[in-house]
C-alpha cells in the first residue's frame, strides 16, 4: 500500500490540506446520482467557508450539497438546475447565495475544456438569450456562436464505481455524468469509489478515466445512494 501514494483511508484524510476558504470546488453528479456523498459530509465537517461550488444541481434539503446550504458554507453556485431545493430558494431570495446559471451542456463543456487546456470555446447554446449578455459572439459559416470560458476548480470531488490504486476509474450507468469531465478540471482531484481494487483488476480497455487525472482516492463505506424520484411500473 505504501507504494500507492494516492490511496487514502477515508474522506476526511483524503481532503486533508486541500480545503481553504473562498475556494472553488467542482462536484460531480446529476441530481443525487453519482454525487460524492462522503466528501460532501467531510467538507461540511471541515467548516470551510465561502465556497464557490460548480455542480449541475445542488442536492436536496437534507442530502448532497444541500448539507452545505444548511451550514451556509456555499457563497456561490454554478449550476444548470436548482429546482429541487427549498433551502436554496430561501437563501437565494434572501441574497445570501449567489447563483450563476449555465446551460447544462455549456457547464459540462466548460469543465471538459478546463481539463483539456482550452481556455474558451464557441457554442450556439444560449445565443439570443440572457446567457449571451456581456459575452463575445462570432459568426462561423453564417451562424452566430457565443464564447464561453472554460472552468477550472481548486478541487474536483467526484465519485466512481470502481477505481484502482493508481486512480484509474470505471463509472457505472448514468452515475458517470459530470464526474468524468469534472475530474479532469480540478487543480487537485479526489475520488471516492464504491470499490477500490488492485491495479490490473480493471481491463485497460475498460478504464473510463485514466488515473493521471486523479490525485487521491479512497473507498467510501456504506454509500447511501439516495434516489430522488423513485418511479416504478406495475409488474
Amino acid at each position: 500500500m505504501s507504494n500507492y501514494k494516492k490511496v487514502f483511508p477515508d474522506a476526511k484524510t483524503a481532503l486533508d490540506g486541500l480545503l481553504f476558504n473562498d475556494m472553488t470546488i467542482l462536484a460531480g453528479g446529476f441530481g443525487l446520482c453519482g454525487i460524492p456523498e462522503h466528501m460532501i459530509v467531510a467538507i461540511r465537517d471541515s467548516g470551510v467557508q465561502n465556497l464557490t461550488v460548480a455542480s449541475n444541481n445542488c442536492g436536496i434539503d437534507d442530502f448532497g450539497l444541500g448539507l452545505l446550504l444548511q451550514t451556509k458554507q456555499i457563497k456561490k453556485m454554478i449550476s444548470s438546475y436548482v429546482g429541487e431545493n427549498k433551502l436554496f430558494e430561501e437563501q437565494f431570495l434572501n441574497g445570501e447565495l449567489e447563483l450563476e446559471f449555465n446551460p447544462q451542456g455549456t457547464l459540462a463543456e466548460r469543465c471538459r475544456a478546463g481539463g483539456a487546456g482550452i481556455p474558451a470555446f464557441f457554442t450556439k447554446t444560449g445565443v439570443g438569450t440572457v446567457i449571451a449578455e456581456g459575452k463575445e459572439t462570432r459568426d462561423f459559416d453564417g451562424e452566430t456562436y457565443l464564447m464561453e470560458h472554460s472552468l477550472k476548480g481548486d478541487l474536483a470531488v467526484v465519485t466512481a464505481w470502481k477505481g484502482d490504486k493508481l486512480g484509474n476509474l470505471m463509472f457505472r450507468k448514468t452515475a458517470r455524468n459530470f464526474n468524468a469531465p469534472m475530474a479532469t478540471a480540478g487543480k487537485t482531484c479526489v475520488v471516492e469509489v464504491e470499490n477500490l481494487v488492485e491495479v490490473g483488476d480493471i481491463e485497460p480497455d475498460q478504464i473510463h478515466l485514466p488515473g493521471i487525472y486523479v490525485d487521491r482516492i479512497f473507498e467510501g463505506q456504506n454509500f447511501e445512494k439516495r434516489i430522488e424520484r423513485r418511479t416504478i411500473r406495475d409488474s
Binding site: 446529476f30 441530481g31 443525487l32 446520482c33 453519482g34 449541475n56 429541487e84 447544462q104 451542456g105 457547464l107 459540462a108 463543456e109 469543465c111 471538459r112 464505481w161 463509472f171 457505472r172 450507468k173 448514468t174 452515475a175 458517470r176 455524468n177 459530470f178 464526474n179 468524468a180 469531465p181 473510463h208 445512494k225 439516495r226 434516489i227 430522488e228 424520484r229 423513485r230 418511479t231 416504478i232
Partner: peptide
Amino acid sequence: ADLINAGKQTITELPESVYFDSA
C-alpha cells in the same frame, strides 16, 4: 440508484443501451 433519466426518475436499460458522460 445509478440509473435515472434527466427528470431524475428511475429507469431501466435495454440491450442496446449506451452510457457516457455529460460532456
